[in-house]
């Protein structure tokens, strides 16, 4: 067994970054496609997304051997910005930077309109600026989407067979992030006692992403089993099999999916409280985190 170069702190980074941007693009996309019906979701998405990205960046920096040199990622020897296209880490750093700027500005346009923030010095430039908000939101959107993919692609551009033997890791992490983002929004909606129909709608979206994720997971495992059988075995019946089957597959994907479908099927008839969507959202979030942890550690166990 090899030493662990990227420890759990990197799994946290990959998780919060993916979850954060997904909450963000969920809000923007839902609001755009509905022609402005989901403004509140867009706001919630920004409030979840931007702080999580900042937490993620902190995690990334804490894990460095030399945290104080982190700026070497963006500034070269001559103090000019550096971007290295062959380096996924370099690309990711710039995506995160761009998202923090545009998404951060977008979140400020919401913050500026909150009661408690009225009269804060800089914020007033962001208040009542629907045009600015729209522009910043759309500028941040592509970066948010690319970051969700990047968290998987980062692992794929390495020497670990479990990570680099299939072309699906970016896709898997995108889907896992999206269902985590939707679940985060569901939890906020439930915590703020929002309309049950609204929670129902998001639960429905979450179920669809959950199904897509299951399909991709299966394709990935089939491909991995032929391309890197030893790596696949680590998950399927080796060291990580309990976490994989029980944690990720059963409680992270199948159980919440069954719960969501049950709930959606019965929602028309019953006046149900929001326990089912909340519970399934919590399970999905935990499963999504566990996916990062297990893939990160199993990848390093046999490379």
């Amino acid at each position: 067994m090899h030493e662990i170069a990227w420890p759990v702190i990197i799994a946290i980074y990959l998780f919060v970054a993916g979850d954060g941007v997904a909450a963000f693009y969920t809000g923007i996309l839902a609001n755009t496609f509905s022609k402005g019906k989901y403004e509140r979701i867009a706001k919630i998405g920004a409030y979840i997304g931007v702080p999580l990205i900042i937490v993620g960046l902190l995690m990334l920096i804490i894990d460095l051997g030399r945290p104080l040199s982190f700026w070497h990622f963006v500034l070269g020897e001559n103090f000019l910005p550096i971007f290295r296209p062959s380096s996924t880490m370099s690309l990711g750093t710039w995506l995160l930077t761009a998202f923090t700027v545009f998404g951060g500005g977008y979140a400020l346009t919401w913050l500026a309109e909150e009661e408690f923030a009225r009269g804060w010095p800089v914020l007033k430039y962001f208040a009542s600026r629907p045009g600015l908000r729209k522009t910043l939101g759309y500028l941040a959107l592509p970066f948010a989407v690319l970051i969700a993919c990047y968290t998987g692609v980062l692992l794929a551009s390495t020497a670990a067979p479990l990570w680099n033997s299939t072309p699906y890791l970016g896709l898997l992490f995108l889907l896992s992030a999206t269902s985590a983002g939707l679940s985060s929004i569901i939890l906020i909606l439930a915590a703020t006692k929002s309309d049950r129909c609204l929670i129902y709608t998001f639960s429905q979206a979450d179920a669809i992403v959950d199904i897509l994720e299951l399909i991709v997971f299966i394709i990935l495992m089939v491909r991995l089993s032929s391309a890197a059988p030893e790596s696949a075995a680590l998950l399927l019946n080796g060291e990580f099999s309990v976490l994989f089957w029980l944690g990720i597959v059963a409680f992270g994907l199948v159980v919440p999916l069954v719960m969501e479908i049950y709930e959606l099927a019965s929602s028309k008839k019953n006046v149900i409280n929001t326990i089912v969507p909340v519970l399934s959202a919590v399970l999905i979030l935990a499963g999504s985190f566990l996916t990062r942890v297990v893939i990160l550690y199993a990848g390093q166990a046999n490379f």
Binding site: L29, V145, C149, G152, V153, S157, Y168, L174, D206, L212
Partner: peptide
């Protein structure tokens, strides 16, 4: 990897969003 992820973006944008 990027190719598959970007196809995924298209799919997700359509369903569920």
């Amino acid at each position: 990897n990027w190719l598959h992820a970007l196809i995924g973006v298209g799919v997700v944008a359509f369903a569920p969003f």
